[in-house]
Design a binder for these strands. Structure first.
Lengths: 211, 211
DNA sequence: GTCGGAAACGGACCATGGTCCGCTTCTATT
DNA sequence: AATAGAAGCGGACCATGGTCCGTTTCCGAC
C-alpha cells in the first residue's frame, strides 16, 4: 500500500478513531437494545443471545464489540460514569468545584453511594471489567486523594483514598442496605463520620481562612 | 435400633445432624478431591465435571452437596476460616486475647490481609456464597466492633467495623497489590494508619517521615 | 431378615457465555 | 469504477454451570 505520508500522520494526531461505519452502527444498535433490555428485565435477565437477536446482529458481533458480558455491562455503565465525572469536575457545588473540600468530599460520598446502589445490578454484572477496570474507580480515587490533599491530610493519600471508597463498593453496600436493611441515611451518616475521623476534623467546618 | 422415643426428641435438641452415611462419605471424597485439584491447578481451573469424575461420583451429587460452584469453594474456605476464628477467639496474642485492644485490632488486620490475599482466588471463586454469606465476614465485623467498643470508640460501631474491613476485601487488595504493585507492607501500614485515625489515637508519626 | 419409604445418586439434558472461521462488506487506492 | 485487502459479520460449535428424574442405597421398624 503506497500511501500518502500525510494520511499516516493524521491518525497520529487524530488518534484512535478507526472504526468502520457498519461497526459503529452495530455498536449503537447493541447499546440501545441492551439498555432497553436492562430497563425491561433487569441486568441479570439479559442474555447475550437474546441481545444479539433483539439488535438484529449475530452473536459473534456482540462479543467482537464488547469482549464479554462484563464488557457490555461496563459499556452501559460508561454513560453514567462519564456523567458523574463531569458533575465532579465541572458540575455545581457541593459535588462540583466551588464548595470547601470537606463538603465536596461528603457530597462525593453521598453521590457515589446513591449511584452505586442504583446501578448495583449492572455493576455486579460488569464484574472485573466494570468500574475498576475502566477509569471509573481510579478517577474517584484520584479525586478523593486530591480533596484529602486540599484538606491537608497527611499520610499515604492514595491508600487513604481507596480506604474511604471501599465501603461504598457494591458488595458492602448491598449487604448493609438490602440484606441487613439499614436505611441509606444511616450508612451515609456512618460514612461521613468515617471521613471526619480520617480527615481529623471531628466536628463542623474549620474556621474560615482555609485554602 | 430400639424405638426409644428419646431418639426422636434428640434431633430437636441436637439439631441439624441428619446426614446419611453415603452422603457423608461423598462429601469427604469431594472435599478432598476439590482441595487437591485447587492445589494442583488453581481454583479457576477446577470444573465441576472434572471434580465429580475425580471424586468418582456423579455430577448431580456435587451440586446436591454444595449447591453451586460458589458453595463448593465456600466449603473449601470453611476450614481456613474456622482456624482463623479460633485463632482470634482463643489463639495466642496479639491476635488472640491477652493483648491490648489496639494491638489486637492491628494484628487482626494484618492476619486478615494476608490470609485474604493468600486465598484470593478461592474467595473470588466463592463469590456471594463465600465469606459474606457464611458467618465469616460477620464474625470479623463483630469482632472488630467488639474491639472498637473496648477502645471506647463511639459512633456507629457496626458501620465503622465494616468500613475498616472493607479495604481488606479481595477486589481492593488485588488491585493494590497485584495490579498496582504496592508492597504488602505499605498497604498494611496504610490500614494501620486508617485504624489509628478512626480509633482516635494518632500514630507516633516520625516527624521527618510520612508527615 | 426383610420391607417401605425417604434420602441420595448419577448422568442425560438444558441454558448460556464464549470461540472459530468461512463469507460479506467496507474503504482506501488507483 | 474497479479492486484488493482489511475489518467486520454471523451462527454453528464448544465448554461448563446447573437442573431433572428414574434408579439405587440407606436406615429404622417390624
Amino acid at each position: 500500500m503506497t500511501t500518502d505520508p500525510a494520511r499516516r500522520l493524521l491518525p497520529l494526531a487524530d488518534q484512535a478513531a478507526p472504526e468502520r461505519a457498519d461497526a459503529a452502527r452495530n455498536r449503537e444498535l447493541l447499546l440501545d437494545a441492551a439498555a432497553a433490555m436492562v430497563a425491561d428485565l433487569g441486568a441479570d435477565e439479559v442474555t447475550m443471545d437474546a441481545l444479539a437477536a433483539r439488535a438484529g446482529v449475530g452473536k459473534g458481533t456482540v462479543f467482537r464489540r464488547f469482549g464479554s458480558r462484563g464488557g457490555l455491562m461496563a459499556a452501559l455503565l460508561d454513560h453514567t460514569e462519564r456523567a458523574w465525572q463531569a458533575a465532579v469536575i465541572s458540575g455545581p457545588p457541593p459535588l462540583g468545584p466551588g464548595a470547601p473540600p470537606l463538603e465536596r468530599l461528603l457530597a462525593l460520598g453521598d453521590s457515589r453511594l446513591r449511584t452505586t446502589l442504583q446501578h448495583a445490578a449492572l455493576i455486579r454484572a460488569a464484574g472485573a471489567e466494570g468500574a475498576r477496570a475502566s477509569g471509573a474507580h481510579s478517577f474517584a480515587a484520584l479525586h478523593v486523594r486530591h480533596l484529602l490533599a486540599q484538606l491537608e491530610v497527611d499520610g499515604d493519600l492514595p491508600l487513604l483514598a481507596v480506604a474511604l471508597l471501599a465501603p461504598l463498593e457494591v458488595p458492602v453496600l448491598e449487604q448493609q442496605v438490602r440484606l441487613d436493611g439499614l436505611p441509606v441515611e444511616r450508612v451515609l451518616a456512618g460514612w461521613a463520620d468515617l471521613v471526619r475521623r480520617v480527615v481529623g476534623r471531628p466536628a463542623v467546618t474549620p474556621p474560615g481562612g482555609a485554602t
